[in-house]
Design a protein around this nucleic acid. Structure first.
Lengths: 189, 189
DNA sequence: TATGACATGTAATCTGTTACATGATTAG
DNA sequence: CTAATCATGTAACAGATTACATGTCATA
């Protein structure tokens, strides 16, 4: 129906709202933890929450009397949870990889609590497949340019390859971790 | 005087304009090469070029008669070259690292042709120092959270560390490469 | 003559940044 | 009483995305 493209920040908020929180709580998450890549400015958070609420993905309720000032606590609606699940389970494309690992990691980080560890494992497998084909393409492009660019340009491109290979290594490490956990607990989910 | 904050795309354009190019040429670079992270849409490129020209950093001249349609070729002005140099030689901060490696790599890729290999080496040393301190901080934060997040969250954080360590490894590789090159040519620039 | 590559641009819209504004409550 | 922290928001502006508009030249 109406899917007016939710930006990355919107999904970050949906994921964090698995635990009901106020705008201020969310800002603190962005400013104090490792999610500093997202803006903690009120001019970003509050309008984004308003958009999500207008789209019916979250619902805010004012909490009075807890001592402090009026606080609006937001919760995921069923529609919001569905949207979050859809986002996490989208298969990983070349475009996702070109944009960088950040959004992929955000999806992965939420995958387990939203959908369970089988979903995390599936995401890792989809990621590994996309990475292998991407790395091949990068090597092919490298062959074409390595003679015609300065050393710094060649090295920068090499980092592009190394970083992607590092992500693939991590993927294998993560899969191995889930395998171990699965055994320890004796099975999936 | 007037430094109304040039966005990343602006610097990418300045760097590419070391070789005089038209807007269309630049778009092709963004759409066809490894710089796909930047938008190749005319709605991004042409206004960005207009801003740079208004700021006196580049100058466009219409090239007639080369067979095809009117083509406006842009060139760096001395002011633009100075701005580019300033951007490349800025020391690397924690904020730069948090935002990701992309802009750092862009600066590095241009450093050699704009300022020479000594500048590239200095940038690598500055980067290595910033990375070492950042990695320590990441490990410290990891200790605090690894018990309280789900496996997928812990793994995502681990990737943050691994990716940063990978960048540090690359930095050493790049420094070693310059050392070898320096020996082969018998000294710096 | 119609298609596709070359080449440049504009308009509407969306999102984020920066800075400001407001006001309650708590600690000193 | 004053400052800091909690908590929410708005307004002006900058920049990107998407889609559209325009027009040339080569080729099939």
């Amino acid at each position: 129906m109406n899917s007016p493209k939710i930006p990355s920040l919107g999904y970050a908020l949906l994921g964090l709202l698995q635990k009901p929180s106020s705008g201020y709580d969310l800002r603190k998450v962005f400013s104090s933890t490792s999610m500093k890549t997202y803006s903690d400015s009120p001019g970003a958070i509050y309008p984004a929450l308003a958009r999500l609420e207008k789209a019916g993905l979250i619902r805010g309720s004012i909490e009075e009397g807890s001592g402090l000032r009026r606080r609006q606590v937001f919760r995921l609606t069923p529609k919001g949870l569905a949207e979050l699940k859809k986002w996490i389970t989208r298969s990983i494309t070349r475009e996702d990889l070109v944009r960088g690992a950040q959004e992929i990691m955000l999806r992965f980080a939420f995958s387990e609590t939203v959908l369970g560890s089988e979903a995390s494992i599936q995401m890792l497998q989809s990621l590994a497949a996309a990475l292998k084909s991407y790395i091949e393409a990068l090597y092919a492009e490298f062959e074409g340019i390595k003679g015609v660019v300065p050393i710094s340009g060649r090295l920068a491109f090499e980092y592009g390859i190394r970083g992607t290979e590092c992500l693939l290594d991590w993927t294998r490490h993560a899969l191995a971790t889930y395998e171990k956990e699965g055994k320890r607990k004796g099975g999936a989910s």
